[in-house]
Simulated scan of single mutants.
Amino acid sequence: MPLSPLPAPSRAAGPTRRGLLGAGAAGAALWGLAACGSSSGSDSAGGKDKGAGGKSTAKSAAQGTRTVDSAKGPITIPAAPKRVVAINDFPMAAMFDLGLTPAGVFDAGEEYVPQRDLAKWRAIPKVSDGVGGAIQVEKVATLRPDLIIGIDAQANLPYSQLSALAPTVLLPFTKSAAPWRDMADQTAAVLGVPAALDKLKQRYTERTAAIKQAHAAVLARTRWDLLQGGFDEGNWWLYGHGSPIGGILGDAGAVFATASQRLAVQQSVSYELITTKLADADAIFYYVTNDGKPANLGPKLFAQPSFQQLAAVKAKHTFGSIYFLPGGYEDALSVLDDFEKALTAL
């Protein structure tokens, strides 16, 4: 999957999955992140990033540490970290999926947090400079983390300063074709519970198969386009079959209309091309905030006369989901729930 040269369509400057997925930052190959040398001893990691090649497995085990791979190389971390700061919302979503609560999180904006996680999210200290701002080392320090987890696509990240506070693991987002899946799996591996997501994985497999079987007739006659309202005036975002949302709907049997079928990941599109791109869609699946409204500049896109004249829009075959840019397995399962509701309505 080629990298997109387009700028990240993020509502703010921060390294959120909404901006990163919109920019097509995910690459083609999964760069495996494996945890090794685990022990059940002390959870103290000594406070600093040990880097590569430092200690043998036996010595690390005796000190209650493990060594994990990261985008920066091998990192020595506590065997059982207890105060984990998630400086990106991919590891945050993974921890929520695991039933864990981070000690601190990046603030990507409350309107993008699913209702199921909202109360928990509100109670967690935020470590960015306001909504979408830079990571503030001082805020992280006050939380006394024993582990920090982020992703390698984060720009202007004060990595050395964070590493001085606690071992800092950056997950290889840029080499991932399905970040919602890969970042969740790799976060679980870093936390020493690689099998903890197995039940969610099984539910996902079962749900996609069940949707294909139960809605075969509707799936066969319906062609879908996928879109996001965008962040630049006069433009919106079209998503393709190879995007994360396209992959999930494809697993459930979705057939894509011409524009989404021809597009590998996603691209920014002018309002002038609304009819050209979306004319043959039978239904449209799009991104909403947690109040159900079209996300970002979606209201302006939906108000365009050319959008209102689309066959799918006139037939009221437009369906929104806050999980359109999934962060983990629970999000992916919720995408499937929203997709099945749409199929039922058709």
Rank of each mutant, 00 (worst) to 15 (best):
K59C: 15
A52T: 14
T57S: 06
G41Q: 06
T76Q: 11
S60F: 10
S39W: 08
T76W: 03
T76G: 12
T65P: 02
K82G: 04
R66F: 00
A35L: 09
G64I: 09
Q63W: 02
V68E: 08
A35N: 09
A58Q: 12
D43V: 04
A71Y: 02
G47C: 11
S40L: 13
D49F: 12
G73D: 08
S70K: 01
L33F: 01
A26M: 08
G54Q: 10
P78E: 02
T76K: 05
I77G: 04
L33S: 13
P74L: 14
A45H: 05
I75P: 07
Q63Y: 00
K59T: 15
A52L: 15
T67Q: 01
A45W: 06
S42C: 12
A35F: 02
T65A: 07
S60P: 11
C36V: 06
G27H: 09
K48Q: 13
G32R: 07
D49H: 12
S38G: 07
G27R: 14
K82I: 00
P81G: 03
G54C: 11
A79I: 04
S38L: 06
A61Y: 03
S44T: 10
A45M: 03
G37F: 01
D49G: 14
S44K: 13
L33Y: 04
G53S: 12
A29P: 00
T76V: 14
A71G: 04
V68N: 05
K59R: 15
L30H: 13
D43H: 11
A62Q: 14
K55A: 08
S70E: 02
A28S: 14
D49K: 13
K82C: 00
G46A: 04
S60G: 15
K72P: 03
A58K: 12
G53K: 02
W31N: 00
L30R: 13
Q63A: 10
P74V: 09
Q63K: 06
S60C: 14
G47F: 05
C36F: 01
P78A: 03
A35Y: 06
G46Y: 07
T57D: 11
G41R: 10
S42Q: 09
L30Q: 05
A71N: 02
A71V: 03
A80R: 10
G27C: 08
S60T: 15
A80G: 00
G41F: 03
G51N: 01
D43A: 13
P78N: 03
T65I: 03
T57R: 02
A29H: 08
S70F: 00
K50M: 09
A58C: 05
S56H: 04
G54P: 07
G27Q: 10
P81S: 01
K59D: 15
K50I: 06
A52Y: 14
G53Q: 05
A34H: 05
L30S: 11
G53M: 07
R66A: 10
A80E: 02
G51P: 03
A58R: 10
W31Y: 00
W31V: 00
A80M: 01
S70W: 00
A52W: 10
G32F: 00
G37T: 02
